[in-house]
Design a protein around this nucleic acid. Structure first.
Lengths: 182, 182, 182, 182
DNA sequence: AATGAATGAGCTTTCATTCAT
DNA sequence: AATGAATGAAAGCTCATTCAT
């Protein structure tokens, strides 16, 4: 029982809110209120305040997405099968979280302050996801070149479909992605 | 023809800033300052203030994108040719605007207030662009079904590649899109 | 009737409070409350906020001190007479303002943020006062060298006596200054 | 002799910071950080927190000034000689400490909270210094009345010259004091 | 004696908007 | 149509202090 609930509560609440409304669309007061955290505690755990918390939330969310990738590709018989399962899982995630949210990582990229910390973080997350998909692709029999190309296309397609899903308020944009790509 | 340059200046400045930093990341004071508009003038031209201006900026930017689509597909010999030219034109636009910006339409979608006016506007813009691409597709010999599918895939790909371009800070993500899709 | 009372109210209230408690000892909320100014107005008149206001208050106070110097030396028959009158006037000012205050200029010097704007301002104020005393000295028959030396000594003595007056909570420290110097 | 270096470190760091920026210009967090003291330790050694620490810092600094007075007047041949040495020693101290600082005692007087504890402390410190100078004066042959008058004038002059030195950012204001007074 | 997490009141400043002219 | 002063709610953050261990 060595949990640090305050910090975790802040991160998870922040990740959810940033996903919903973007970095600048969320005030720290709102994060504090929803996570039932007193004002001063935020700056104890994140000395640089909102930007620190946002990066932590992006990291946490990125780790979660890696798990989703593993869950989708782990039992897959081939790459297309894994990619399709991933799209369906993301569609479900999109619906659960309210049918409107982006992922916190893109919310920081597209909406956060214009500094290198944020930009580098977003690029690093996408590389992490892509690398993981490449791993699964080679494991499932693709050549390294094929796996890299397929992973790039899938990541790009997911980002595009996610924007479409938000615009049209329908997770089906994500479910239709495999049929469009393959 | 009595022009109202103040209103136009506001719209163009707002479009640029929203593209760079998102709806919530831009303050009206900044728009006013950069467009050299006096404090009180905004509410003459846009009685509802910032949201009104944002919608006008999105409309203006959307019309510009329609022109770019026409410029790309007009002289094209087939759909793939037009799509490729479009991607290169958007890459150039991405570079000119600073190598970081999204389009104001997506900035309002992903970052703006959570009301139906904004969500509907974004969806409508995307339908407009898609419909225009469909027109060019049928003109260039595709069946209506083929044209619709190709237009959907292209729009989705562009949105995805745009996100990638922002994350990796490179317009090449847009230039590489045709090779990935076709 | 072309008065701008809001800005003047802010300056005069700020000068009084800074004099009493020093730059860091006064919050803008207190200045706003005592001057019955709404919060947003401060940044309309002083875009850089508290530092801007502090400099304006120091300027205003410095101009007031120049008037006191003129009032003291104007009717004087010789330098010592003028200096003595000045000390008595300052003692009276010290008593009226509560028997504890420094002048806002020194409050900014000794207590304000450590930037060149503040340091230069304080030095400039002291030069202004000294130069004015030199003027009166030469007018009253001193040679330029004598006037400069006497003015320096008087300014130094006043600053020292003021500190003593605050420490001992007695304006008599200022009244006793001429007897100690001459 | 079980030393408590934590307490001493706090006092010395606090004295330095208060000297530089005044009581309200220094936060306890800064004192804690620069003295490498953990957050909770302050209230072990100073149960009343910042005010307690400030008084301790003023006491420590005042004792140091008494030593400087003894060092200056001890080997002196007459009062003027001792006073001159004292001014030079203080000028050196002023330069070493950064060319900007006041003494912590005056920083508490001019900048601290408006309570009797602080005001009495400052007055007591000045009386201590003056009494010590009087001692040296009588030892060096002055009558009690002469010694008291000279000590008063010297203390007043030093306070004034110190303000001038801060305003003009030059310790020479202190070195020039004897020539101005005598 | 020592520690770092917790606390909420308070800080300066920015926000989008309204008003009187 | 145009303007700049006015407005107060809300922003992100720092404050000195207390607490449980």
């Amino acid at each position: 029982m060595t949990d640090t609930p305050t910090k975790d509560r802040l991160i998870m609440t922040a990740a959810r809110l940033f996903r919903q409304k973007g970095y600048h669309g969320v005030g720290v007061a709102e994060i504090l209120a929803l996570s039932k955290t007193p004002k001063g505690s935020l700056y104890h755990h994140f000395p640089n305040g909102k930007p620190d918390l946002a990066v932590a939330a992006a990291d946490w969310a990125s780790a979660g997405l890696l798990r989703i990738i593993d869950d989708a590709f782990g039992p897959a018989t081939d790459f297309t099968d894994g990619a399709t399962t991933l799209c369906y899982k993301l569609a479900k995630f999109f619906d659960i979280s309210g049918g409107w949210d982006g992922c916190p990582v893109s919310s920081i990229l597209l909406d956060g302050p214009e500094n290198d910390l944020f930009r580098d973080k977003v690029a690093a997350c996408i590389e992490d996801w892509t690398a993981r998909v490449v791993q699964h692709g080679t494991r499932l029999g693709l050549t390294p070149g094929q796996a890299a190309a397929q992973a790039e296309l899938l990541m790009l397609g997911i980002q595009g479909a996610w924007v479409m899903a938000r615009a049209r308020r329908s997770s089906d944009e994500l479910r239709k992605l495999p049929a469009r790509l393959y």
